[in-house]
Nucleic acid binder design. Structure first.
Length: 419
RNA sequence: GGAGAGGUGACCGAGCUGGCUGAAGGUGUGCGCCUGCUAAGCGUAUGUAGGUGAAAGCUUACCGAGGGUUCGAAUCCCUCCCUCUCCGCCA
């Protein structure tokens, strides 16, 4: 969340950010509620101060075995007034909190302004465009020829969007996950975490999925738990309500998890094969850094994600998301889109974002700086990368005329493990 | 799921027959002093958040969370959460 003092001091800046991000947070309501809250707080403080003072008097009289009946009678009225103001105050606090949680992060100055993804800025292309001298199949045809997937049965047991990987398909999926994990661990210095896949409401609020995206998530009513839409949520929240030492920063974590998304509102869009799923696998990187280091960390993490695509020899492009396509919590995001030659389109496989102190404020993650002052650290995360579209690009890029596959050599050790 | 025990400041740990406790004592840490080394000793300081103020300061809240009783609650009552031990059930 944004510092309320900052919002008070820079309302127009916030208003612009909300507009550029196509959010519908009610800034005016927030400012008004904040003012009301402060005025109630002022009244409350004064009455409390009076009560505290007189309580001292009552206490000392009682100790001296004197009567304090007058004071107690007088305080009866004050107590009633305090109680009533306290009710209003706590309502007011709840309201301010709710409105504040709906204010999105402010895009960084170098983020292109635009209303939707069509205005994202293509920064560069990387990797060779694959050359094939035969008609290309798309990933679903290739998967069928090689018996890699069983989507109908996945749909039968769960619903569409819940894939079954079969035989070599399952092994390949597992190989991709393990390769990426080890790559980030060994070459990029991340520490691996295995984390809960169901998290509570507070955790979902900490990273910014709640309150906005409740409809997009699977919810377990019985325990009020949500299935994670990304490992970002549990990993970033590991330090919620904690204070780290500045010497302990930066910290870099990588986690593989399945991700669950209801994809409400996107039915019928890009649904063929593995393009859009309710459950998919992803290797996610998360960093906790000093505020002054977050911009450099963002570039580094982008490289970390790109290294995976390069290792597979895939063609891809790097986008800087425009304000309208930026997520609620992000202040700057790069997307990686990999080329799927059979489908003839670029597919998003990674999103690398700097959240500044936005998430750290929500989740209350702080660090003690060299002077011993408490400050909010900065958080970042990036997919490194999501498997389904990576699989699409690999299958379509590595296909041969007969539909068989010639996969990158780097995957060999992972596919030929012997026991 | 059942029965007990417990959740206090960076940490350990008192208080829990309501008022003098933002919280003893200890450890740790900062600063100063003392001591010809290491160690020890002495003094002093050391929470977070909100409001107000140029600042010093003043003030409010916070002893797991939320309610309640009371003029007044870390202390009494209720609900919930979490941890530990034992039992049950089950990967």
């Amino acid at each position: 969340m944004i510092d309320l003092k900052y919002i008070r001091a820079n309302p127009e800046l916030i208003r612009k950010a909300i507009k550029n991000k196509n959010e519908k947070a009610d800034l005016d309501a927030l400012l008004k509620a904040d003012e009301e809250r402060r005025s109630l707080q002022y009244k409350f403080d004064n009455l409390k101060a009076q009560q505290n003072t007189v309580s001292q008097v009552i206490a000392s009289k009682k100790r001296a075995k004197e009567s304090a009946a007058d004071e107690i009678a007088e305080m009866g009225e004050v107590a009633a007034e305090i109680k009533s103001i306290q009710t209003d105050l706590s309502k007011s606090n709840t309201l301010v909190e709710a409105l504040l949680l709906a204010i999105p992060n402010i895009p960084q100055a170098d983020v292109p302004i635009g209303r939707d993804e069509s205005l994202n800025e293509v920064i560069r292309h990387e990797g060779e465009l694959p050359q094939h001298d035969f008609p290309l199949k798309d990933h679903l045809d290739i998967a069928t020829i090689n018996s890699l997937l069983d989507l109908p049965r996945g749909a039968k047991i769960s619903g569409s969007g819940f894939p079954i990987y079969t035989g070599f398909g399952a092994k390949l999926e597992r190989a991709l996950i393990n390769f990426m994990l080890e790559y980030h661990i060994q070459k990029h210095g991340y520490t691996e975490l295995m984390v809960p896949l169901a998290v509570n409401r507070k955790t979902m609020t900490g990273t910014g999925q709640l309150p906005k995206l409740e409809e997009d998530m699977y919810h377990i009513d019985e325990d009020d738990l949500f299935l994670i839409p990304t490992a970002e949520v549990p990993v970033t929240n590991i330090y919620a309500d904690e204070v780290l030492q500045y010497k302990d920063l930066p910290q870099k974590f990588v986690a593989y998890t399945p991700c669950f998304r209801r994809e409400a509102g996107s039915y019928g869009k890009d649904t063929r094969g593995l393009q859009r799923l309710h459950q998919f696998n992803k290797v996610e990187m998360v960093r906790f850094v000093l505020p002054e280091d977050s911009e450099a960390a963002l570039c580094e993490m982008l490289q970390d994600a790109e290294d995976i695509l390069k290792a597979f020899g895939l063609h891809y492009r790097v986008l800087s998301l425009c304000t309208g396509d930026l997520s609620f919590a992000s202040q700057k995001t790069y997307d990686l889109e990999v080329w799927a030659p059979g489908s003839q389109k670029y597919l998003e496989v990674s999103s690398v974002s700097n959240f500044g102190e936005f998430q750290a404020r929500r989740a209350n993650i702080r660090y003690k700086d060299a002077e011993g002052k408490l400050r909010h650290l900065h958080t970042l995360n990036g997919s490194g990368v999501a498997t389904p579209r990576l699989m699409i690009a690999l299958l379509e890029t590595c296909q041969q005329a007969d539909g068989s596959l010639k996969l990158p050599d780097v995957l060999r050790p992972w596919l030929e493990l012997k026991i």
